[in-house]
Design a protein around this nucleic acid. Sequence first.
DNA 1: TTCTAATTCAACCATATTGTTGAATGTAGT
DNA 2: ACTACATTCAACAATATGGTTGAATTAGAA
Lengths: 121, 121
Amino acid sequence: MVELETPQLNSIFHALGDATRRSMLQVLAEGERTVSQLAEPFDMSLAAASKHIKVLENAGLIRREVRWRTHVCHLEPSPLATAHDWLGHYENFWTNRLDILDRLLRDEDERAANSKKGNDK
Amino acid sequence: MVELETPQLNSIFHALGDATRRSMLQVLAEGERTVSQLAEPFDMSLAAASKHIKVLENAGLIRREVRWRTHVCHLEPSPLATAHDWLGHYENFWTNRLDILDRLLRDEDERAANSKKGNDK
DNA sequence: TTCTAATTCAACCATATTGTTGAATGTAGT
DNA sequence: ACTACATTCAACAATATGGTTGAATTAGAA
């Protein structure tokens, strides 16, 4: 049950790997925005911004509601939660230093027993 | 203090956006591994795996210790924590539904006050 | 119908990414 | 000096990504 959601994670992390898109998400955290509102802060064509928005949409990070002739986007938090959960799987490694030490020592033992066992004591 | 770490996040999220690399991190969570050990499960050349490892290394997600003639890699948790923190910034959106409702309402008000104020009451 | 606005589509270009293969590097053992 | 091993480097190819511009779409307003 560890890596079943691989394809989702690919698109989610890929979408997050671009500063423009992360910035768009931050704006959307303050409330819904139209495509042109999302595009406005960036020094790029509307078509380019539209592509970024589509990447976010394909990753499931935002949803779009076609309202009148404008497309209103809003944050969809569940993929963020999925990514957050995946990272949380590693939480012990940065919070509980004893845990990582324990793992490293356990691994040392294993390797020592496996390869050469002449140097101990 | 919200988006100061942008360049790091670019490389971190980009590195995480590939299933091969995430899989390598999962193996490294069990203990250190050499380059060839990391490459072994994958149906690709050693050179290709070496490139993946370099991507992880450049993102700071792993560190490498040249031990004898083998390169031993181990997990470096801090960038994972950075990414986790960034995502945690959105935690309210998937845990506390009241919060998101609050935000949306606040935004509604703001927008209503800003554009046309003829429809209220 | 025609005008205008918001957005996408299509074609294109430059660069990045991911993979390949074969040669090069560095180091220990013989 | 030679061999064997672990890894990287270099050159190349295929595909993906991120940007551009100009035309197409869509739908209300005049």
